[in-house]
Design a protein around this nucleic acid. Sequence first.
DNA 1: CAAATAATTCGACAATCATCAAACTATTCG
DNA 2: CGAATAGTTTGATGATTGTCGAATTATTTG
Lengths: 105, 105
Amino acid sequence: MDEALKIFQALSDSTRLAVFQCIRGCGGETAYDTETGCCDATEPGAVALCDVKCQVPCSPSTLTHHLNVLRDAGIIETDRRGRQVYVQINGAALAKVASFLVNTK
Amino acid sequence: MDEALKIFQALSDSTRLAVFQCIRGCGGETAYDTETGCCDATEPGAVALCDVKCQVPCSPSTLTHHLNVLRDAGIIETDRRGRQVYVQINGAALAKVASFLVNTK
DNA sequence: CAAATAATTCGACAATCATCAAACTATTCG
DNA sequence: CGAATAGTTTGATGATTGTCGAATTATTTG
């Protein structure tokens, strides 16, 4: 399945996997960091890019690049709200690949 | 998890994914091809490299390279029997990554 | 032992790709 | 409007990596 290949490629870079994990973990309800002021997710399951950047050390352009790869693979979805772009995980795509992995034969 | 990263890297190449699928599909009971004589798996769940090579078009050295990557990632296991090396899938490793993918938060 | 089959090792080469800086667009706010 | 914040676009560059051919090792068999 070609869809699975794209997802594997998207998750095959350490920085990109960190971004992925950040979006997943930070999108929850309790992930606010009072020290840095980062990760002030306004709703469950969505994070602003600027908050991701706080936790994954890379330049803005690199982050944009990685997000494009993740989005093209169908792993995440983005929508802009005012100045910020919010990101969230597409669970369905992940579930499909997970079943592909486990599926015998 | 660093283990997951390695597995994603291993499956992020189209040729390697083809090898993976070949081992999985061909390792079954009924995959013998009377035309080419390929894929004469002697036991369920194991395939000889020469049979994989029949189905995935690449040079022997390339195949060896890909198998090393897959083995280092823990996806497959190999053992030599006489002239041939047999390969089989390590289901446990795949199951672990599958649950990593689905796992929310 | 010699020949044949199966697989590995080694180098080299081409292509892909992650990264960044700089310049730019988009949006809010004073 | 002008300043500030948030992201994107566009090269360029350095590193990684997939591929192969040639030489080599391992094993069986005549």
